[in-house]
Amino acid sequence: MSLIVEPIKMPGPVDSDFLLAAERTLLAWNRTSISLMTFGFFVERFGMFLEMTHREEVREFQRHISFSIGISFVFLASFIAVYSAWQYRRTLRMASPSGAPPGYNLYFCMITNGIIALLGGALMVYLLRDIL
């Protein structure tokens, strides 16, 4: 009895359903990262709104908490965009792209996730400019 577990290998060429399902999963993570980024920006700006109401008991404490939580959400969104693109790339390496429809670009969604991650980084720099 062997305790070594062998990796699963795909039998023969992969059909287009598998590749398109992987792409749909990547796009779902893309939507999730955009939603988290939007929520983080909203939380950060809501803290600024509370600061503008000039309530002293809220001003000092609330602004720092909303800023930290908002930046954390934007960072998480950027991380999810990069990590899901990396996972998708691993899936493409495991599968044979010969199952894709002719002329279909399998890497477009991966590029889109990379752009979303870069925009998340730019948003973090924009939000951090008050601190720096």
Rank of each mutant, 00 (worst) to 15 (best):
A100R: 04
F46H: 12
A77L: 00
I115T: 04
H54S: 14
L76V: 13
Y107A: 15
Q87I: 14
H64W: 04
F73Q: 08
L27V: 13
Y126M: 10
L92C: 02
S35A: 15
E23A: 06
T25A: 11
A95Y: 02
F73E: 06
M52D: 13
P102A: 13
M52H: 12
P97I: 12
N113M: 06
A81D: 02
A22W: 01
V14N: 03
M94W: 07
N30T: 05
T38Q: 08
E23P: 02
T32P: 02
S16I: 09
C109D: 05
A122L: 13
L92V: 04
I65M: 07
V43E: 04
H54G: 09
E57V: 10
I8S: 05
M110Y: 06
L127D: 00
L27Q: 12
F42H: 09
G99M: 05
M37W: 01
V82D: 10
L76S: 08
Y104S: 10
F75R: 04
Y126F: 14
L128C: 10
L123W: 09
R59L: 12
I34V: 14
Q87D: 14
N113W: 02
A95R: 05
L27W: 13
Y126T: 08
E23W: 09
A22M: 06
R31V: 07
Y83D: 11
W86L: 13
I69D: 06
F49Y: 15
V14F: 04
I69K: 05
G121W: 01
A81M: 05
N113P: 03
P102D: 11
S78T: 07
M52A: 15
M10N: 09
G47S: 02
M10F: 14
P13K: 10
G70Y: 01
L118P: 00
F41S: 00
S66P: 03
M52I: 11
S84V: 03
F18P: 03
Y126S: 04
E60Y: 15
L20T: 04
M10I: 15
E44R: 03
H54Y: 10
T112D: 03
S84F: 06
Y83A: 14
P97F: 01
T25H: 11
C109G: 05
V43N: 00
F18D: 04
E57G: 13
L50S: 04
A22N: 05
P97A: 07
N113I: 04
A22L: 13
W29Q: 12
M37G: 06
I80N: 08
T53Q: 14
M110D: 06
M10H: 12
N30L: 13
E51I: 07
R93Q: 10
I71P: 00
E44I: 00
L127H: 09
S66Y: 03
H54A: 14
E60F: 15
R90A: 11
M94T: 08
H54F: 07
M94S: 12
L19Y: 03
G70F: 03
V82F: 01
A22I: 04
A100Q: 07
S16H: 15
Q87W: 13
V43T: 08
S16C: 12
W86N: 12
F73M: 10
G40V: 01
F42N: 06
P101T: 09
L106D: 06
A100N: 00
F39N: 02
L26W: 01
V125F: 02
D15V: 02
V58I: 15
E57W: 12
I65V: 15
F73K: 04
R55D: 15
A117D: 01
I111N: 06
A95C: 11
R129C: 08
